[in-house]
Design a protein around this nucleic acid. Sequence first.
DNA 1: GTATTAGATCGACAAACGTCAGTGTTAGTG
DNA 2: CACTAACACTGACGTTTGTCGATCTAATAC
Lengths: 117, 117
Amino acid sequence: MQVDLELAPKQKRAAGERCCEPVVYPDVQRDHALRMAEVAKALGDPIRLQLVDVLRRHAGKVCVCELVPLFDVSQPTLSHHLKKLRDAGIVDSERQGLWAYYYVIPDALKELSTWLT
Amino acid sequence: MQVDLELAPKQKRAAGERCCEPVVYPDVQRDHALRMAEVAKALGDPIRLQLVDVLRRHAGKVCVCELVPLFDVSQPTLSHHLKKLRDAGIVDSERQGLWAYYYVIPDALKELSTWLT
DNA sequence: GTATTAGATCGACAAACGTCAGTGTTAGTG
DNA sequence: CACTAACACTGACGTTTGTCGATCTAATAC
């Protein structure tokens, strides 16, 4: 990967000409970018980020009924956030009679985490 | 931090009683969660994520005129995305005559990156 | 059986989002 | 000077989002 540390002032081009050629192209493949953006978007809400935080730190699976009182939103709203996290492939759930237990899917955050490092 | 690996089935409580006490509380401070969610949200769009990717991999500062042709959106739209990244404190820009050069603010992604690890 | 609980889904709403065409501003070119 | 290029901003648009109250489903308690 070539690096250009210098800030290269351009010259204004004549009418009709493009100002310059791109010197850097996206490295991250389109689909990787799409996938990572999807994960980032799912984490882009404070409640969801904290949900993931709780689930990650709790090595086991956590009952929804324990999650609801942690946040100042209604139960349907929390359910909605959990669904978003499920749709993004970050968490999954397991029904156990009347209760639902959520957990973070191992390595779900790995790709984004690696890129971010 | 106590860990509960077991999946503990609950008992249905009598009328009027709460089903259970939360066993895990959010560890990430509210404001940290807010800040990280803000960054994640800004990265939650494929174009913005790729913009950050290009800017990060290019150690110097990159002219907007080099960024525009990389994406299939209009110049105003790209400008809008760059503004979002600026508002989130991820990138900053520097005017140089007719051109604007963007760069990633060092450590802007650090907090999120660390938490994600 | 009936009553109650945990949780998901539905419908509605305002707010925020991504996009574009148009416009404005500033700075080089000739 | 007039012209044009680079970029930000505005206004409009259709879509998505976060939230709630109400409702539905499934399972347990009595």
